[in-house]
Amino acid sequence: MLKMKVQDMTIEYTTTPKEKPDLSTLVFGKTFTDHMFVMDYEEGKGWHDARIVPYGDMTISPAAMVFHYGQTVFEGLKAYKNEAGEITLFRPDENMKRLNASNDRLCMPHVDGEFVIDAMKKLIAIEKDWVPAKAGMALYVRPVMFATEAYLGVAPSKKYRFLILLSPVGAYYKEGINPVKIAVEGEYVRAVKGGTGAAKTAGNYASSLKAQEVAEANGYSQVLWLDGREHKYIEEVGAMNVFFKINGEIVTPALNGSILPGITRKSVVQLLTHWGENVVERQLSIDELIEAANNGQLEEAFGTGTAAVISPIGELFYNGQKIVVNEGEIGTLAQKVYDTITGIQFGTVEDPFDWRVQVATT
């Protein structure tokens, strides 16, 4: 099968460019750029017809298998523009590895990660004026893949479509980098070992909505998920990985098959290790966490993810008990991690790991 090359893509430019949004009123995930990347897959033919086209609605069969059996995966990363106008991506190779791991779990074909990154760079270069050159803002990049075969049979699809959408964004949470209030989820579960928790697939997020709705109705920004078997061990916070600083030790739940292997999580672990911090990946029970909080040993707590980067936790609610973390303020470690990762992303801090990937815009 021939390897696709970015120079072989077709490009159709829009004839009706949109007005750029007012950055002061930008809402996460609501605004999309003028163009998108598309390619299709058919069993026996492979990936083909790679193209950049004007952003717009698509025609798809109502019998497309994605609607009935949920074969869809996606990724999320950002493009950043510094004061010099340089645009960079943050570890896109890791997104491609995770995308193909998700494809494996959902019985979907792999993509050529190198080609997709090249196509992504080309699309971003075309949309370079959409990348906000402002701290805390970025161009969100959403690769998504779904089954398109029109067939009402429970089996892997033989046809797929792959898209890359671009969306200029500000802060994911309205609180920004300020601490959020989190409710420990006592009824619903996000995923179980052996399920699809380690894959970035839509069903995981759909199943989380009810708990999120209940938490928000009670004044909490997100939920802290416990494991699906014993309902005892901490897994994620909302759609983010989670870290706790307990008596000087920084603990994050070990990847166990039901936890998404976050790229920001991986970066935070590498960064903390680089600093010589005592960081461990292990099981952490909610009882151990509550005991640490009651003993004054819970120093900090924060979520990590692409959308928010770092989201400090200022309060936990569990079994009728409100636990205030670090007096409801962002901790020094969370602030340092946030400043360093965003500094690397925007090119204002040294990048000893070569995480930044340049996007050529000329």
Rank of each mutant, 00 (worst) to 15 (best):
M1K: 14
M4P: 15
T10W: 14
L23T: 15
L23M: 07
G29L: 10
K30F: 13
T31R: 04
H35C: 11
V38F: 09
K45I: 08
K45N: 10
A50G: 13
P54W: 08
I60N: 10
S61A: 11
S61Q: 04
A64I: 08
A64D: 09
M65L: 15
F67S: 11
H68G: 09
Q71S: 08
T72Q: 11
F74L: 15
E75L: 10
E75V: 07
G76K: 15
K78G: 08
A79F: 14
Y80V: 01
K81A: 02
E83Y: 02
E83F: 03
A84F: 12
I87L: 02
F90L: 06
P92G: 06
P92Y: 12
P92M: 13
E94K: 11
N95K: 09
M96H: 10
N103S: 15
D112E: 09
D112L: 14
G113N: 12
E114W: 12
K122L: 07
A125L: 08
I126R: 15
I126S: 05
W130R: 09
M137E: 10
V141S: 06
V141I: 12
V141D: 03
F146R: 02
E149L: 09
A150M: 09
L152C: 10
G153M: 15
G153Q: 08
P156D: 15
K158C: 14
I164M: 13
L166V: 14
L166K: 03
V169S: 05
Y173M: 06
P179L: 10
V180C: 07
A183L: 14
G186V: 02
E187T: 14
Y188G: 03
V189R: 10
R190N: 01
R190F: 05
G194N: 06
A198G: 07
A198M: 11
A199P: 11
T201G: 07
S208T: 06
K210G: 00
V214R: 10
V214Q: 11
A215V: 05
A215G: 04
E216G: 14
N218G: 11
G219S: 07
G219H: 13
Y220C: 03
V223L: 06
L224K: 09
G228H: 03
G228V: 01
E230H: 13
G238W: 00
N241T: 02
F244E: 00
K245M: 05
E249Q: 06
A254C: 08
L255I: 09
L255G: 05
N256L: 14
G257F: 12
L260I: 14
L260Y: 02
P261G: 14
G262H: 03
I263S: 05
T264R: 03
V269S: 00
T273M: 02
E281I: 01
I286T: 09
E288R: 03
E291P: 00
A292N: 04
I310M: 07
F317I: 05
G320T: 07
Q321D: 13
E327Y: 12
G328H: 02
E329Y: 15
T332V: 08
A334G: 05
A334E: 01
A334T: 01
K336T: 04
K336C: 00
K336Q: 06
Y338N: 05
D339A: 04
G347R: 11
T348I: 12
E350R: 01
P352R: 00
Q358T: 15
A360W: 02
T362G: 12
